[in-house]
Design a protein around this nucleic acid. Structure first.
Lengths: 343, 343
DNA sequence: ATGGTGCCTGAAACCGTTTTCTGCCGCGGG
DNA sequence: CCCGCGGCAGAAAACGGTTTCAGGCACCAT
């Protein structure tokens, strides 16, 4: 742990120069002799000095931040997530910084940078490397959201594997299906990885051979259409598509519809999340309900607590319960919801 | 404009007390006599003093902020919006604070509070009152995103009215439809308000009488299902549903499907946005393409420029072009996209 | 009268930077 | 030999707050 934060004065002392010189070197402003620069750079390097954002912002009279205000976004997953997190933060009078690493190169560096502007942060599983996550944990309280953390980094998640095993078992046993496909990219996020694992586990339990590979698609509705395209046109079309989330499933439904396949008669489709649309499409989706908003809110609370009590040991990871929601897309006659998997 | 920012020292001078006393009063900490408190409170009130967040955070060695990191969210609208804004901010090495006012009471106060933690901000149209918006504009550069600002507050938007008029005209003239319904809540956002206005205008142009009221629903897919429920079960079902956005339209499609209505034969449905799913459903949606991401990016750039040059006059509002996208859900035989409305 | 006890108050230190201002030093030119 | 000048470095003053610490003062008990 960074016991005593290293400040500009500390570096100045170590390098035997004034704080003004350290500032000049670290900003590349003004004239500094080669010798001084070298000494300062050395000290900075050795002690891992990074200028404090608050001090800098105060002196510059500039926050280095933009605000974005919107009335509410209640989409299926990320929107719920953001809202859950945000509402908890607002309740604690904290503001929320977001960083969307999507497709950017040096996202690890960006996350590290962000850590210096906040009191603590939640990182979604699969977003950055475990090494960075560990570095992060030394800088500020961190919790992994929907995923597992390395070492003692706490996380908030649901038991994706168990829930998917249960759902898959339902298809294999109760509906006697034998040829299931899985749509989603396990490498993309721990969530999907666990769901794929649960899918495989259900097969193995029953001595059945699962497909060797999932259909690797992203997590949006268009990707579900794509998955259907890949699976349904060949000769070896599956009996069922177990989708990594509801959006993929909704897309798959569209794909089936376009081919005049009746769900569930010709093809079974299942989802994960229990998004609002899941109950409304025709046929309604069999899926797993997941408390996305609570997940994020719990993460925010864990961070807030850790900020409050900086010397407390890292909190325990939390696993929230899911609920298996049986509707008609799996072939069941009517809607039922059956109990959770774990607490 | 707040020429000289009012600081704790300023208040102290005015009230004839020390800065320590001002701090104690403004935080409610420590013991302060009634007389002193009154004097200080008076000065604070009169000069509208609010403690600077940076100074406070620096002293407290706490940012008062949480971070949220995720890999990317590419939902239909808000997600695009956030990503567009965020990527531009990151490019300028600024962080993004979000505030989601959804269903909260004192959101105006919260926005004002946020303004004190950022260099500038974008507020979505219809989120807060015009009075607050004007107050905000004195505190920091503001731009209204998807909406119009009061006074000289600049905005970034598309010409929703013209685009919707064009689409409506297409249904009325080219397809000869006479009984159109509109799904969306004009009171909810300037966007929808303008689209409703454009819908009405097209009718009036042709001397037709539009429906007296829209079907007031929110902007998600489930709301589209709801709109269909409201419209299609009665005896006076419309020929077409002009939806305020694609999500509503997608939901309406589901609603129609559940009633065994064929689109476009039995019912025409149109959307707005050109979300990814619009082209993939069956039938593909006739809609208006809107550069959501660019909209947000442009807003971010405007703010950034204003922050850079604080004394420049408020920038001009920007109207980005839309594109009318004709697909099959309106009854046209094949897909076409036709030019933009304005620049 | 004297000392102790609380309650208030303000001076000053501190948070961690940047930036201005002053001054030292060596060098070249008059 | 002296002066001016340019390059560099450091002291100190911002930036806008909070917090510690010491002292003044009124009041009460001895």
């Amino acid at each position: 742990m960074g016991k005593t934060r290293v400040t500009v004065r500390e570096i100045a002392r170590l390098a035997g120069v004034s704080i003004a010189t350290v500032s000049r070197v670290s900003n590349g402003t003004g004239q500094v002799s080669e010798e001084m620069r070298r000494r300062v750079l050395e000290a900075i390097e050795e002690h891992g000095y990074r200028p404090n954002h608050l001090g800098r912002a105060l002196a510059a009279r500039r926050h280095g931040a933009l605000g974005l205000v919107f009335p509410g976004l209640s989409g299926p997953y990320f929107s719920e997530l953001i809202q859950g997190f945000e509402s908890e933060a607002v309740a604690a009078r904290a503001s929320v910084h977001i960083l969307c690493t999507h497709l950017r190169e040096d996202s690890d560096a960006e996350v590290l940078e962000m850590a210096r502007r906040v009191d603590g942060l939640a990182v979604m599983g699969g977003t950055i490397s475990d090494t960075t996550l560990l570095r992060l944990a030394e800088l500020a309280p961190v919790v992994v959201l929907a995923g597992r953390g390395p070492g003692t980094v706490p996380s908030v998640s649901v038991d994706n594997a168990a829930a998917t095993t249960r759902l898959t078992r339902h298809l294999l046993i109760d509906h006697g299906l034998r040829d299931l496909a899985f749509a989603g990219t396990p490498e993309g996020s721990p969530d999907v990885s666990d769901r794929w694992a649960g899918f495989l586990a259900a097969h193995r339990e029953l001595g059945l051979v699962p497909p060797t590979d999932p259909v690797r698609v992203a997590m949006q509705q268009p990707d579900g259409v794509l998955a259907a395209d890949r699976l349904l046109d060949g000769a070896a079309a599956p009996d069922a598509i177990v989708c990594a989330n509801d959006e993929i499933a909704l897309g798959a439904l569209v794909g089936a519809f376009r081919r005049d396949l009746r769900v569930p008669r010709d093809l079974v489709v299942t989802g994960f999340d229990d998004a609002p649309m899941a109950a409304l499409v025709s046929p309604p989706l069999t899926t797993v309900r997941q408390p996305v908003r609570d997940l994020a809110a719990e993460a925010a609370r864990m961070i807030l607590r850790a900020v409050e009590a900086p010397d407390a040991p890292a909190p325990d990871s939390v696993v929230l319960p899911t609920e298996f929601v049986v509707r008609r897309s799996c072939g069941c006659p009517a809607d039922t919801t059956t109990g959770g998997t774990d607490a």
